[in-house]
Nucleic acid binder design. Structure first.
Length: 847
DNA sequence: ATCTATGGCAAGCCGA
DNA sequence: TCGGCTTGCCAT
């Protein structure tokens, strides 16, 4: 049937080179479609499914659903097969558990559905659709294809010979599953990067109250202007002509401005511009800009057909186009922490722009409603420009990341840029199930077969025991080497064949293949899917992309690409263990997470014992790292060799410290490297909430410590540190610091009413702000100072200098500095003079 | 609708 | 006053 008949829509579709960017479902046609980026004219072409697969439709009304899916019930594959027969057939093809698919078969990009029934399961066993559909066709998002007479075929690209040669050597001794996976990853990651034409859009909306954000669902106020900034630097601005009082005035010369008497005409002009581009970028366009336009256009009498937008539940797409909401991308915790190293802290365009581009939003005294046309245009254009530049800076880093993540996760770019890391991993694993013809287990099926955890967590309320943190040896240590296991948990998943299928397998023969520290065992007969996929990704990163990204002999663009891929892989690998311990993950399997952590403890424990047996002192260690009191190459190399031999794990010499200062606190240290750079971990002085004045003094002290080369030099350093602390103390006492410098900055974890058990200080301050009519939302940073009086705190906005509680601040200074000083054997009292301090000292010093 | 994990520290709250 | 608990932030 269908496979032979070309859809009418596809007839005559010929594209030389097209990148598959997104997968969607057209409800009216009841067909899946692909959005293809045509590189010859930079437009999106739509390709409709003509493979003849039947869509399964989900409806709240069961009768309606049956009716809609009549075709499926008649499907020959389904009709033929009896229930018991199906299960047997499944069992034969599976590893060792009965695994049954039970997700919404229309989940494009994978939205789980509660609507699950045998019908779907059986149907899924025989035909595949939608999410599985691009896999059936052998398609991978963001890869190049040729379309000829409506048929898609992959475009070959050359693999770099050095990569091929290197990999063949590195793959020696690995099994065939692993080798195949590594080759495929390289092929995906080395495919060409498409040049993507795109425009950034931003709107400004009139608001009668300056501080209130207009509600997009109501869209009751007019849109004042719409700015477009494209990746070739073209700037266009559409402005609503509001008549009297707003004379047309000269606008910057490179700005193409158009004025409209009618807001509807302005929107129509905006739609024409949107249609010009294959890709539209916004910063929060899902929730605000495009959402407002959507509702406003209808309020002005336009029909849905006149608007080139497609509104989904959580996102807005563009007909014949792609919409990427960069806010959703940057708000993603994994991106923030691992790819951008926490350079930005707040999820605003201003903060992200400042951190990544060195430039924030345009400052303006007036609200948009009161701005002159030229000011309004400049303000709006700046936001559009920042949004665009977030996608272009550093040789298109962000676009590259999205493309690479899309290829790894097999999600289209609209999905991958909006979803979290657990969904990327889910999609990656599902794809492999489908390719192998495996059905996918439901969460309750895995849980029932594999059960929960067997160890007791150290922290109350956690599900299982985690990593080891070695008790630090307090003091200053000169000549320290830090060794760590490269990608510890992914390596464990690879070496120990961990996966939901293989843990606690049904074979008697495997029961003695135990995970140390647990009653769990692991299958010896089959390889687990996740072990293969995560293990191969890990090897691709560690053996190819990471070293290449550091190779200074490579041309810059090449090295940049290696760096991007390396970062993208890091993000996925870092999450690859945690997802199995997250209830919300669709392949949640607590014993897998527990076993991973347990093996991690075993590995580091063995390494510590080995170091000791070599006569090396172990100063500290955390999860996957050990800090050793030697820099003797022979000893270190022996340890590395031993780890490879004995544990099958790659232990690496990470760095050397000229000296390392340890207190008795875990996860707290200061290490100075040979070149004088300093690693500060966990110390209060660097934490976000600490007042600026104290951070400054703290870093002044660090600067001094970084210059210390030998034990003797601590004496002069001590004097200089003494001066810093004294000065800090005096300025505090004389009230020379501004309120801003004195402010603690603490984030609201929830709304002010959400705090029922206790009322922390920042919440007290927040409530004072609420009383003044200032809205406080979760995620807001509250700046407050400590004051004398009942409450003890006040928001900066409401405080005055003379009510500052200097004693409290002094306590804070002393405890902050002590963390470093007690490691160095310096008494805080002695720095500042005990005489003056006596009255302040409350808590005794540690150690 | 969305959400990787556990371990550890400092500070403050709050009831015994 | 003490100690358990909550909170936020950080390490890995």
């Amino acid at each position: 049937m269908g496979a032979e008949a070309l859809s009418q829509e596809n007839q005559g579709l010929n594209i030389g080179e097209a990148y598959l960017l997104s997968v969607g479902y057209d409800g009216e046609r009841r067909k899946a479609f692909l959005k293809l980026y045509d590189t010859s004219d930079d437009r999106i072409k739509i390709w409709y499914d003509d493979t003849g697969h039947l869509p399964y439709c989900i409806s709240k009304d069961p009768l309606e659903e049956l009716e809609m899916n009549e075709g499926i019930a008649k499907h020959p594959g389904l009709a033929k097969m009896e229930r018991a027969e199906r299960y047997d057939a499944l069992r034969d093809r599976r590893l060792d558990v009965v695994i049954i698919y039970a997700k919404d078969p229309l989940a494009i990009g994978g939205r789980p559905s509660g609507c699950i029934r045998d019908l779907v399961r059986a149907w899924e066993a025989n035909i595949k659709y939608a999410e599985s559909y691009i896999y059936d066709l052998g398609l991978v998002p963001c890869m190049p294809y040729r379309v000829s007479n409506g048929r898609l075929s992959p475009m070959a690209h050359e693999l770099p010979m050095d990569a091929v040669a290197h990999l063949e050597a590195a793959l020696e001794g690995e099994d065939e599953d692993h080798r195949r996976a590594v080759r495929e990853w390289i092929s995906l990651l080395e495919a060409p990067m498409p040049k993507l034409k795109r425009v950034a859009l931003d709107i400004e909306v009139y608001s009668p109250i300056a501080t209130r954000v207009p509600d997009p669902d109501e869209a009751e106020h007019p849109i004042l202007c719409i700015g477009f900034f494209d990746n070739e630097g073209r700037k266009r601005i559409l402005i609503l002509d509001r008549g009297e009082g707003f004379e047309a005035e000269p606008l910057p010369g490179d700005l193409e401005a158009s004025f409209f008497k009618s807001e509807a005409d302005m929107l129509r002009a905006a739609f024409d511009i949107i249609r010009e581009y294959p890709i539209v970028l916004t910063f929060n366009g899902d929730d605000f800009d495009l959402n407002y336009i959507w509702h406003r256009a209808q309020r002005l009498g336009m029909g849905k057909g006149d608007i080139p937008l497609e509104v989904g539940r959580e996102s807005i797409s563009i007909k014949n186009g792609i919409h990427i909401d960069l806010y959703k991308f940057f708000v993603n915790k994994s991106m923030q922490v691992y790819a951008f190293r926490q350079k930005y802290r707040e999820m605003t365009l201003d903060d992200v722009g400042m951190a990544l581009l060195g430039e924030g939003k345009r400052k303006s005294a007036a609200s948009v409603s009161e701005m002159s046309y030229s000011e309004l245009a400049a303000y709006c254009m700046k936001d559009a420009e920042l949004t665009m530049r977030l996608s272009t800076y550093d040789d298109e880093l962000v676009m590259k990341l999205i493309v690479v993540l899309s290829r790894i996760s097999f999600l289209g770019i609209e999905d991958v840029s909006r979803q979290g890391v657990s969904n990327w991993i889910r999609s990656m694993l599902y794809r492999e199930h489908r390719r192998r013809g495996y059905l996918i287990p439901r969460p309750d099926e895995i849980l029932e077969l594999k059960g929960t955890t067997a160890t007791e967590a150290t922290i109350k309320g956690k599900k299982y025991k985690g990593a080891i943190v070695v008790e630090p040896k307090p003091g200053v240590h000169f000549g320290v080497a830090v060794l760590d296991f490269a990608s510890l948990y992914p390596s464990i998943i690879k070496m120990w064949n961990l996966g939901y299928e293989t843990i606690l397998c049904p074979h008697e023969e495997c029961r003695d293949n135990l995970v140390p520290d647990t009653p769990h065992w692991i299958c010896r007969k089959r390889r687990a899917i996740q072990s293969v996929l995560i293990g191969s990704l890990r090897d691709v990163r560690v053996k190819w992309y990471k070293p290449k990204s550091k190779d200074k002999t490579l041309p810059e663009p090449k090295r940049n690409w290696y760096m991007v891929v390396q970062d993208a892989l890091k993000v996925i690998l870092n999450a690859s263990y945690g997802v199995f311990g997250a209830e919300t993950f669709s392949l949640y399997c607590p014993p897998v997470a527990e076993a991973t952590a347990a093996i991690g403890r075993y590995v580091i424990r063995r390494a510590i014992e080995k170091a000791k047996s070599l006569g090396v002192e172990v100063l500290y260690g955390d999860t996957d790292s050990i800090f050793l009191g030697t820099t003797d190459q022979a000893l270190l190399n022996e340890l590395v060799r031993w780890a490879k031999e004995e544990l099958g794990m790659e232990l690496e010499i990470d760095k050397y410290y000229r000296y390392l200062a340890l207190s008795s606190r875990k996860k707290n240290y200061l290490g100075v490297r040979e070149d004088g750079s300093v690693d500060i971990k966990g110390l209060t002085g660097k934490k976000r909430h600490v007042p600026e004045f104290l951070k400054k003094a703290f870093y002044d002290m660090i600067q001094i410590l970084s210059e210390v080369r030998s034990f003797d030099e601590f004496n002069s350093a001590r004097e200089r540190i003494k001066r810093i602390v004294r000065e800090c103390y005096l300025k505090l006492k004389n009230r020379e610091y501004s309120l801003e410098e004195l402010a603690f900055n603490v984030m609201m974890g929830k709304s002010p009413e959400g705090y029922t058990k206790t009322t922390p200080q920042h919440v007290k301050a927040a409530r004072l702000l609420s009383q003044r009519g200032i809205e406080i939302k979760p995620g807001d940073l509250i700046a407050f100072v400590k004051v004398t009086g009942e409450l003890g705190v006040k928001p900066v906005q409401l405080a005055s200098k003379n009510e500052i509680d200097t004693e409290k601040y002094l306590e804070y200074i002393s405890s902050t500095f002590e963390q470093v000083l007690d490691a160095l054997g310096i008494e805080f009292d002695e720095l500042i003079g005990v005489r003056r301090l006596e009255s302040f000292f409350g808590p005794a010093t540690r150690g």
